[in-house]
Design a protein around this nucleic acid. Structure first.
Lengths: 134, 134
DNA sequence: ACAAAGTTAACGAAAAGTGTTTAAATTTTG
DNA sequence: CAAAATTTAAACACTTTTCGTTAACTTTGT
């Protein structure tokens, strides 16, 4: 049984970063170049992104694709779309209108401005009515 | 920008598995040995485990270890322990007694039977009073 | 006990990821 | 603007992961 995705080096850099040190300061401490600290930090972030994406795959594994919510859609129109598609599959959605909007906002905090989506969002649903936005 | 941790092969096997196929059946479909299907599935699970551990690290990155809640502890005794340790650090916990118990139940759904923990649980706290059980 | 399902070990070749360096380019900030 | 901080690119050595094989082993259900 091995550790997580991040190497010792990567965790080291992230910890120092969390403390507010600059890349140059970290480079001095761990005795390497600042450019190297940059690449280490970057690959750490990349690994974190991949870890998230991996768990996202798990969610979609036991869910079915519900619909694509097109860019430009008003956030307040999303629940109706989701409910209508879920009804076609005879699945009762676990969320009410308000909590579904909040769920979307939390799931895709960078996909909307004000009330409008600026990129497509895929909606998935499990047999239990859990909704996942990907 | 690449994909998640899982290879195409690994996702393929997991999808078939979710459909209930045996390793032998999958081996026939993707034209390899059942032993190979086994190792592919195994390394997929290992990757998933590592993805989770990686995100766990993120949580603990901006939190400090609060205490170890020993196996055998009654769930209803946990809040008092957490509050008392948090007080030593002068941090106000974000949760009240009831919601903290629920938070624990959601975080570690497989670590308790009825009202009793059957394995140690580590408690972490952020400066903002957020609690994380790992 | 039998058969099907699943796991493990040892090995090899190909692919992917990591830590470095050096030097140049870009962004942020006072 | 000028200095500091960060990012990028190309190249190299090194390690780890992956997919695959074969053969033996364990578990599970009837």
């Amino acid at each position: 049984m091995k550790d997580g995705l991040l190497t010792e080096r990567q965790m080291e850099v992230l910890r120092y970063r969390k403390q507010g040190l600059t890349q140059q300061q970290i480079a001095d401490i761990i005795a390497t170049s600042k450019a190297n600290v940059c690449t280490i930090e970057k690959s750490a972030m990349e690994n974190i992104r991949r870890a998230k994406e991996t768990l996202d795959f798990l969610y979609t594994l036991d869910s079915t694709h519900l619909c694509t919510i097109p860019a430009g859609t008003d956030l307040f129109d999303v629940p109706a779309m989701v409910f209508s598609e879920a009804e076609k599959l005879n699945i009762k959605v676990k969320y009410d209108t308000i909590s579904l909007i909040n769920h979307l906002r939390e799931s895709k905090p960078k996909s909307y401005t004000a009330r409008s989506l600026f990129e497509n969002v895929e909606a998935y649903i499990t047999n239990e009515g859990e909704i996942y936005f990907g």
